[in-house]
Design a binder for these strands. Structure first.
Ligand SMILES: [Zn+2]
Ligand SMILES: [Zn+2]
Lengths: 520, 520
DNA sequence: TAATGGGTGCACT
DNA sequence: AAGTGCACCCATT
C-alpha cells in the first residue's frame, strides 16, 4: 500500500478532514484473527456520534458526563494513531480523582477495555489495561489486559507458565502486562482542572468486554449509586448484546501498536504477528500525528455532582475546534452485527460500534468491508446500518443535552425497551445470564440461556430515585452539543511528532485554558 | 580452595558441630569492599548469644518477644547458608499478622536489614529487603535493600538512572530489587500458629543500618507504643553506636548468595563481584543444610500482648535441638569496633555484632581476622573482644529467661548507661543527632554533632508505663534459655539439600509442635 | 481443605 | 509509562 503517502497525507490533513482517517483505517485488511494476541490491538470501532437530529436539551447532571464520555470516545477512535497522545479536552470538571475512573470506564468498557489504575496520587492517575488472568482455566474471558495468547516470543506468558510447571524451575517473571495503552489524568494546579490524555492508543491483546468482571460489576454499582440511569441502561444493553451475540468469545482485534505507530480501525484485524513492529504487512495507515484543536473548553459550570458524583451541570462547550468530529461508522458498516435489536445507547455512542465489533463481526467479513468503503459517505450519513436508529428516536425528557447527534437517535429505544420489556438478569460468571431481581435499575436484555421470565418481570427495585429519563427519556439525540462541543481532541501533543513514545509526557495544559462560555 | 571439600564437610557436619560454620565463614577473606554492591551480602555478624551467665528471670511480656528475637537472630546467623530455609521455630504466638513485622524488625534492623512486606494476606506475610532509593540524592544512606552500588552489570542501577536523566530516554526498569533474601511467615490453620522461615539468607547488596529511615522511626514508635522499653533502649544504643562509629558510611559486607549457596560470616567481605555465583573464590563454607532441631516449642503461654502487642508471657522453650547454638562472635573478634562503650544490648544480642561490623569494622582488618580464628574458642568464650561485656553484667531483673548465654553479659550495661547518662537525642535525617525530648523513653547515646545536654537531660516523658526493667533491668544475660531454648533452627529444610533454591519450599511444620515448659 | 506460591491493583513516597 | 510497599487476589496441590 502506499502507506507512507497516505500517512503523510493523513497526518497533515486529518485535522481539517478527519474523514480521511476512516479511509485509511478501513483500507487495511484484517487478518490473523485467531493467531494474534501478540500484536497490539487498536480498537477504533468508532462510529462517532451523528450530528443529525440532536437537540440540546440535556439537563441531567449525569448527562453531561455521559456526553463527554461519548465525545471523548469519539475523539479516541478518531485518533487511532498509536504512540500519539490524545488529549481529551472537554472533560468533566472532576472534583475528586476518584471520579475519573468511572468516567473513563464509561468510555472504555464499551470498547472492550477494562482499565485499572496503574498509579495514582493527588495530582495524577495513570490507567492501564487490566492484566489478564494467567490461569485462564477459571474463566476464559480475560476481559481486557494482555491475554496470555501465544507470542512469538519464546517467553510467551502461557509458555513460560507451562514451562515453569513442567520444569519445576523457578520463574517469577510474567510478561503479561505488556500492553502499552495508557490513560493519564493529571491535575493542573494552575488551571485547577484535571486533564486526560490517552497514550499509546493500541493494545497488545484482543479486546473483550466482559460483563462478568468484578470490576465491571463495581462500575455498574457505582453508576447505580449515582443514579446515572442512562449509563446503567446503556451498559445493560451492552451486556445484553454482548451475550446475545458473542457470549464469551474473545474476538481479537489485533493491531500493532507502540513503536510501529501502525493504526488500525476497529474492524480491521492486522496481521500483527508481533506486538510492536509487525503490522506493516497488510497494514492500514499510520496517521502520524493528527491535529485536532485542543481548544480547551472546560466544564466551567456547576457540578451538582454532590449528590450524584458523575453528574455535571450541563455546560455546552462553546468549544472551538472539533477538527475531526466525523463519526466513525466504519464498524457499523463493516460488522455484520448479528442481531442488534437496537444500536443506540444512551450516553455511550461507541457502544454500538463496540458490541457490533465485539459480538457480531467476523474478521473476514470485516476485511471485505473494510477494504473499500466510502467513508466520506458514511461520514455524512448519520447512522448507516444502525437499523432502528431513527426509528426509535424519542424526545429526551431528561439528560438530553446533546444536539444534532445522529447516533443518539436510537438511544431511547433501549431505555424504553429495557424498562418495559427487558427482564432483569444478573449475569452469572458463566456466559448464561441468571434472571435475578436487581437491587437497582439494572435491566438486561439477556440473552443466551436466559431464564424464563426474561421479557416479563422487571422489578423496579431501587428505582426510587429513577428520574423520568429512565422510563423513556434517555437524552436520545440531545446528548452532545451540535458541534460535539463538549469534547474533542486537544491534540497538541498529537500535532507534535513524537518519535519516541517513551519520552516523558509533557503535562499538556490545554492551550485555551479557561473561561469560555458554556452555552447551556 | 578446597571449597567443595569444606562445603561438603560443612554441610554435613555443621548440624552437629555448628562451630564449623564460623571456621568456614571466617576462612573467606574479605575484599572489594567498596566496589561490591553486586555480590550478595550475607550478614552473619552473628555472635550468638553467650551462654555464660544467664539466669532465666524474665517476666516482662515483651521480654519473651525480645528473647525470641535474639534466639532467632542467632539461628539465622548460625545458618549462613544461603538458599537454605531457616525455620525459626520458637517464635511469639502472634495473634495478628501485624505483630510479625515488628518482631522481625527487631531481628533484622540490627543486622542492617530493613524489611518490607512483599506480599501479605491473612495466612501469609512475605518480607524482603526494602528497595534502595535510586535518587540517593535525598539521603545517602539507603538503609537496606539493594543499594545502588555499582555493579559490573552494564545496567547498574545508578548508571541506568543517570543515563536516563541524561538522555531523557525512558527507562522504566530498575534492577534494584534483586536481593533474594526473604522471610516468609505463614499461618497454619491446623496448628493455629504462625511459622517463620528465612529464605535465601544472603543479600545482593551491602547491609546498612539507617536510623534515619522513616520505617525505622515507625518501628521505634511502635516499640514505644507498646512500651517495649528494652527494645527501645537497645535500638537507642544501636543508633548511638552506629552514628558514633560510622555515621552514614555504607559498609558493604558483600557475599554471594542465591544459587551459589556461598556463606559468609558477618565480618567477611567476599570478593563477590557477582551476585549469584562468584564468592567461591575466597569462600567460606556452604552449610548445605544445617540441622537444628526444629522441635517446635510454642509460646503456649499467655500473650498479655493485649496492651503490649509484642509482649509474650515468658515461656522457656524446653526446646530440644539447638544443634548449632554456638555464638558467632566472629564479628566481635574481627571488627576493630572503634569504641563501643558497651556492646550488649538488652534483647538484641546480634546488635553488638551488627554495629561493630557496621560501624567499626574495616574490611581489611576483618580479612586478617576472619582468615584464621579459633571459633571454637570464641564459641566457648562469652564475649571475646566485647570489652565491657563481663564487666557490665547485671542481674537481669526482668526479661531474663535465658540461661547461660554469654553474650547477654553486657546487655544491662547500655540500659543503665542510657537511662542514667544518655541524652535523649532524636536523630535527624542527617547524620547528626538532634537532642530532643523524646515523647517516650527513647534514649540515645548520640553521638556525633550531638547537642550539649547530651549526658544530662533525660526526660522520662511517657515513661509512665515504664517498668523497672527500663532503669536497670534489661534481661542482660537471662534473655535466652540455657540451650537457647526459646528459639532455634528447625532446619528441616536445611537438612535436605536444596539444589535449586527456586524449588517451592516444603512447608516446614516444626517437628515438636507445641507444649513445652517455659522455665520462668 | 490447607498450604503454598505468585500476580497485580493502586496509592504511598 | 515514576518505583515499590502492601494487600487482595488467584492458582496449584
Ligand atoms: Zn490494552
Ligand atoms: Zn537484602
Amino acid at each position: 500500500m502506499d502507506q507512507s503517502a497516505l500517512d503523510a497525507f493523513h497526518g497533515e490533513l486529518i485535522q481539517t478532514s478527519p474523514s480521511l482517517d476512516f479511509l485509511l483505517a478501513e483500507d487495511s485488511p484484517l487478518s490473523t484473527v485467531d493467531t494474534v494476541g501478540t500484536g497490539t490491538t487498536s480498537n477504533t470501532e468508532s462510529s462517532g456520534p451523528d450530528f443529525t437530529n440532536g437537540t440540546p436539551s440535556w439537563n441531567d447532571t449525569a448527562s453531561l458526563n455521559n456526553m463527554l464520555s461519548e465525545n471523548a470516545l469519539e475523539s479516541i477512535n478518531r485518533q487511532r494513531s498509536q504512540n500519539k497522545l490524545i488529549h481529551l479536552d472537554p472533560i468533566p470538571d472532576f472534583q475528586d480523582r476518584n471520579e475519573i475512573k468511572p468516567w473513563l470506564q464509561k468510555i472504555f468498557y464499551p470498547q472492550g477495555i477494562e482499565i485499572v489504575i496503574e498509579r495514582s496520587d493527588n495530582i495524577k492517575v495513570v490507567f492501564k489495561c487490566k492484566a489478564s488472568k494467567r490461569g485462564r482455566a477459571s474463566r476464559k474471558q480475560a476481559g481486557c489486559g494482555s491475554l496470555p495468547e501465544e507470542k512469538e516470543n519464546p517467553e510467551s506468558p502461557l509458555a513460560v507458565k507451562r514451562v515453569q510447571q513442567a520444569n519445576k524451575k523457578k520463574r517469577s517473571v510474567s510478561p503479561y502486562n505488556t500492553c502499552p495503552f495508557r490513560v493519564r489524568a493529571t491535575y493542573s494546579l494552575k488551571r485547577k482542572k484535571w486533564n486526560i490524555v490517552v497514550m499509546n492508543n493500541g493494545h497488545s491483546h484482543p479486546l473483550k468486554f466482559n460483563a462478568d468482571s468484578d470490576d465491571y460489576k463495581k462500575f455498574k454499582n457505582y453508576l447505580r449509586e449515582n443514579e446515572d440511569w442512562d449509563a446503567v441502561k446503556k451498559f445493560d444493553e451492552l451486556e445484553c448484546r454482548t451475550r446475545f451475540n458473542l457470549p464469551t468469545q474473545p474476538q481479537p482485534i489485533p493491531c500493532d501498536c507502540g513503536l510501529t505507530q501502525e493504526i488500525e480501525s476497529f474492524n480491521i484485524v492486522l496481521p500483527t504477528s508481533d506486538s510492536l513492529a509487525n503490522s506493516t504487512d497488510k497494514t492500514v495507515s499510520k496517521p502520524r500525528h493528527k491535529s485536532t484543536r485542543k481548544g480547551n473548553k472546560q466544564m466551567a459550570t456547576a457540578l451538582s455532582r454532590n449528590s450524584t458524583p458523575l453528574g455535571f451541570l450541563d455546560k455546552s462547550p462553546s468549544q472551538s475546534a472539533r477538527s475531526g468530529q466525523e463519526p466513525q461508522r466504519i464498524k457499523q458498516e463493516s460488522t455484520g452485527a448479528p442481531q442488534e435489536p437496537h444500536s443506540g445507547m444512551t450516553g455511550l455512542s461507541p457502544m454500538q460500534n463496540f458490541d457490533t465489533s465485539m459480538s457480531g463481526w467476523d474478521p473476514n467479513t470485516l476485511t471485505s468491508q473494510s477494504e473499500e468503503i466510502d467513508f466520506t459517505d458514511l461520514f455524512l450519513r448519520p447512522l448507516p446500518r444502525t437499523k432502528q436508529d431513527p426509528i426509535f428516536e424519542k424526545p429526551q425528557t431528561l439528560n438530553s443535552p446533546g444536539r444534532d447527534q445522529p447516533w443518539n437517535a436510537s438511544k431511547n429505544f433501549m431505555d424504553d425497551l429495557q424498562f418495559q420489556l427487558a427482564p432483569v438478569c444478573e449475569p452469572s460468571h458463566t456466559s448464561n445470564a441468571h434472571c435475578i431481581l436487581p437491587s437497582s435499575t439494572e435491566a438486561h436484555m439477556n440473552c443466551d440461556a436466559m431464564d424464563a421470565g426474561s421479557q416479563h418481570e422487571f422489578p423496579h427495585h431501587r428505582v426510587q430515585q429513577q428520574d423520568p429519563s429512565m422510563l423513556h427519556s434517555s437524552p436520545a439525540n440531545g446528548m452532545l452539543s451540535s458541534d460535539l462541543g463538549n469534547m474533542h481532541l486537544t491534540g497538541q501533543q498529537m500535532q507534535v511528532p513524537h518519535p519516541d513514545p517513551g519520552l516523558p509526557w509533557e503535562p499538556q495544559h490545554s492551550n485555551d485554558p479557561h473561561g469560555y462560555s458554556n452555552d447551556f
